[in-house]
Nucleic acid binder design. Sequence first.
DNA 1: ACCTGAACACCGTTCAAGT
DNA 2: ACCTGAACACCGTTCAAGT
Lengths: 230, 230
Amino acid sequence: MAARTDTAAEPRIPLRKERVLAAAIALADETGIESLTMRRLAHELGVEAMSLYYHVANKEEVLDGMVEVLMSEINSEVSQIEAGTDWKAVMRQRILAARQVLLRHRWAPGVIESRINMGEGVVRYFDSLLGLFRAGGFSYDLAHHALHALGSRGLGFTQELFDPADDAGDEDAMAMLEQMADQLPNLVGMMMEISHDDPDSTLGWCDDQTEFEFGLDLILDGLDRAHESA
Amino acid sequence: MAARTDTAAEPRIPLRKERVLAAAIALADETGIESLTMRRLAHELGVEAMSLYYHVANKEEVLDGMVEVLMSEINSEVSQIEAGTDWKAVMRQRILAARQVLLRHRWAPGVIESRINMGEGVVRYFDSLLGLFRAGGFSYDLAHHALHALGSRGLGFTQELFDPADDAGDEDAMAMLEQMADQLPNLVGMMMEISHDDPDSTLGWCDDQTEFEFGLDLILDGLDRAHESA
DNA sequence: ACCTGAACACCGTTCAAGT
DNA sequence: ACCTGAACACCGTTCAAGT
C-alpha cells in the first residue's frame, strides 16, 4: 500500500469545474439525483469530497451548473430547427426537441424547478420562444401571458401528479382504487370502460408523449386563436 | 430541576398522529418546509424526536399525512360549490377555490409533487373533476386527456419557472438580464416596452393570479371546443 | 495550485431501556 | 402505552495543513 504506486497510474488530470459537472450529470443520469452527494461525486472522480470545494463553491453551484450544461445542449439542438412562416409549427418542434433531451435526464425537471433564479441557459431558451411569438405577430403583452401559460411545458416537461404507472398497473395505486371504489365513481367508471374496450390495456395505457402533445396543442391552439381574435 | 414539577404543568396530552400532523403543517406554514425536521417538529410538541416514531413510521408518513389533511380541507371547501349546468364555470370555481387553500400553504405544491403515490384526498379531488367533465358530456377518453392537460393546474398551482420576482425587481435577475442584453433581444424588448408604457411597473408587474387564470381559461376553453367539435 | 484529514453541526432512524 | 438516551450512518461544509 505504502510504496506501491497504482499500476499504470494515470497522470491524474486536475479537476475542473467542467469535469465535476460532467461527472455529476453522469451520476444523476445513472443512479438518480438522490444519490448525487458531494462524497459520492468526489469518489466517482477519484478524489476526496473536500477537493470539490476547490472548484465549486457548494452543492448548489453544482446543481446550477448541471442545468446550464443541459440547457446549452438543448439550446444548440433547438437552434438547428429552421424557422418557418408558421410560428406554431416551429415552436411545437422546438419544445418537443427540448423534451427529448430532458427525457434523457430524468433529474432535470426537479432540479430546474428547485433553482432560485433561472440560469442563463433557461433565460436564453425562453427568449427564443418569445422571439417566435413576436415573429408570429404577437404583442409583447400576449406573448408574455403565453410564456406563463406554457410554464414548464415550454421547456418540454410537466410535473405529473399521477405518474404514468398510477393510472393502471401500479399495485398500491390499484389496491387503493379498489378499496375506495364507492367513493370514486368516475375514476372507477373510466377504468371499467377502458378495460372493456381493450382488456389488455390495463397496464400503461397512459402514453406520456401523447398526453404531453395533447396539452401542448391545446395551449398553442388557444394562443393562436387569442392572437387572431386580438 | 429534579424534584420540581413545572409550574402549572399541563396534564401532558399524549401525542396523536393527528396532533403531529397539525404541528407539522403549522411549522411548515410559518417557517418553510426546509425547516421541518423531525427534531424541530418534536421540539415544537415539547417532546424528544424519537417519540414521534411511536405515532408515525417515518418522515415520509408525516409528509403524506400533511397532504391528506390539506386535501380534506380543499375537498370540503370545494364540495360547497353548487353544481350548475355549466361544467366550465363550476370547474373554474373549484380550481380557484383549491388554489386559495394552497396559497395559504406554500409548501404544498412541492410536497404534493414529491409524493410517490397520490394520496386518497388527491384522488378524490380528481375524481370530482372527472365527474364534472362527465356531467358536461365529455367521453371518458376526452376527460382523461383533459385531466392530464390540466395537471397540477387542476389542483390550483403551477410550478413557476421564473418566480414572480424574476420578471422585474429581483436584483440578481435584472443584473443578469442587463449583462446578457445583446443575447436576449426579445426579453429586453419586452422589458423596454413595459417600462415605457408604465414607468412604475418595473416591479411586480406579473400578477400570479392573473397569469394562472389566463392559462386556466386557455385550457378550459380549448377543452370546451374539443368537446363540442367531437 | 491543487488536494486532504480531521472535525463540526446537522440529518433521519434504530434499539434497548425507562416509567 | 408512551416516551427517552445513546448511538449509527449518513449529510454539507470549514479550516488548517499537506505536497
